[in-house]
Design a protein around this nucleic acid. Sequence first.
RNA 1: GGCCCCGUAGCUCAGUGGAUAGAGCAACAGCCUUCUAAGCUGUGGGUCACACGUUCGAAUCGUGUCGGGGUCACCA
Length: 608
Amino acid sequence: MHTFINMSFTTFIQSAVIKSLGELYGQVFAEKDFQINETKPEFEGDYTVVLFALVKNLKVSPEILAKNLGENLIKNNPGFISAYNIIKAFLNLSITEESLFSFLKKNYKDVCFGKKSLKHQKVMVEYSSPNTNKPLHLGHLRNNFLGWSVAEILKANGYEVSKSSIVNDRGIHICKSMIAWQEFANGATPQSTHTKGDHFVGDYYVKFNDEYKKEVRGLIETGKPKEEAEKEAPIMKKTQQMLLDWEQGKPEVIELWNTMNGWVYKGFDETYKRIGSDFDQTFYESQTYLLGKDFVQEGLKNGTFYKKADGSVWIDLSDVGLDEKLLLRGDGTSVYMTQDIGLVKQKFEKYHLDKSIYVIGDEQIHHMKVLIEICRKLGMPFADKILHLSYGMVELTTGKMKSRDGMVVDADDLVDEMIATSKHHTEELGKVKDFTDEALKNLYETLGMGAMKFYLLRVDPKKRMIFNPEESIDFHGFTGPFVQYTYARIQSILRKVGGENSVGNGQVAIDNEQWGNEKLLPLERDLIIFLEKYSNVVYQAAEELNPSVIANYVFHLAKTFNTFYAEHSVANAENNEKKVLRLHIAVMTATVIKSALQLLGIAVPERM
RNA sequence: GGCCCCGUAGCUCAGUGGAUAGAGCAACAGCCUUCUAAGCUGUGGGUCACACGUUCGAAUCGUGUCGGGGUCACCA
């Protein structure tokens, strides 16, 4: 008899316990009535049923309940549960080796292991969303990696995902760098100065702020109050005039705007290519900022909005604990919120989304709350399908990053540094001296980006994180390269065993070998049990929109394999059965590592 | 001030109702004629901010206090 388990072990145990309890006590329980945990390493067993809640409910002693349940579980599932033991009200269950073997045989080289089939639900993940007045920095990297990874995780769970970005390409801040360029550049261009376009424009944004501060200081010295000085600084006045000219479509302003944005886009494209960000749709605020005036009229008509004496339009949200919110200025121009609602509406109508996820920093939690509430009040059917995936700011040990003051960790610089560091480490170790220049370049990129992405994704998104620019990102321990190294070592084993024909994962011919009679050693058992949990981890990561769940899992997996690797030989195992078993474990570990890292946007090297 | 988030080892972080709270880094001591030492093993390091409460059981839930951050724009 062969027990074939077509669900996760935990799920199977859950339903088995429910069935047994029904037989024993004639009562129907749900999953929430008891807990299944993994058994602590100091005890015998693989999974633990925590019985305290049931003891209370059934009014029996823990010992008797555990004994009855343990025996019934074995009786009903002899192919799956081999033994039980009881400590206090913890019922520890051991899984049969037969189940572990059949699990391994079925899944060991399945690249889709852990992923779900299509569920016909459309999700849009909006991320990155840069301003076109400055280059990307460390905070944007967290956003980009998060958005990309969450999209992959959702795909792995069967969602149809499209990635989008809204480019913030208009407004007063864009005019600031335009004015500064007009005033100080003397016609310089990225080409003439050999500067990357986004950096070139960003430099003028900084220049604007320097000049503005200088002017304000000057005005204060002539006796003007600070507030007045800030309003009257000539460069600021010019900028405000430029914004008006832009909105009226003044040709020379539009031309300059197009030129400078073009420079920035060229720079962004380069960076996006290096960090692996891509988008199925790109929205430009210059094309969407007028959206939303229609629904304002509608809202006025049905009484959701109201007009003040100066003609401005508002909504009152005090009934849900929020303030009044302006939607249209007295002069009829719209604000950020108005545009945002217009774009949301357009997105849902055009793409028929089941969910729209916004990857935006936690400083905008309030804004998104207001946005959703207004949609709800307007009776928009998608109001509750909007999700704000908020993440904490990346702060430096020296404080917050400010583009205005140039106090930032620049994305391009950091990428360069990571790649240089991986080159340095690789050369020092000298293991890949036979690589071609092309292969070396790829390896440096794989490792450098791996270190960086893992570093930013291993932390719970909603927590803010602190980056110390003095200490560069590590390549040892809880890092991307650590996990990549485990993968490369497994490939090395496979090359050794598979000989010349082996070109990578799963290429060793072991499908037809006879094995499964040798008793499992503890580390072998741990690895199989841990591999089995991958499906649950992929599911959990999607539920929580949290890639750190994957990062933590894959690190633990690599760590466990490394311990196993140090203790037991695969290629020179005690006998052929052991060798075949360990090859199954090794191949599956590599398969899961590759799959998990892919969900984080990280590639794996065959050698390193 | 109102609302929201956070506080776990020297540092960076896991752990959200279960067994003696875990990793990595840093420090120290070991391990390369045997599948890659970017690795492995071990040692030291904790009033889980504090107090009270709920519970058979609390880092985890509730209330309060202290400390840090965010936000409450006719900026985006």
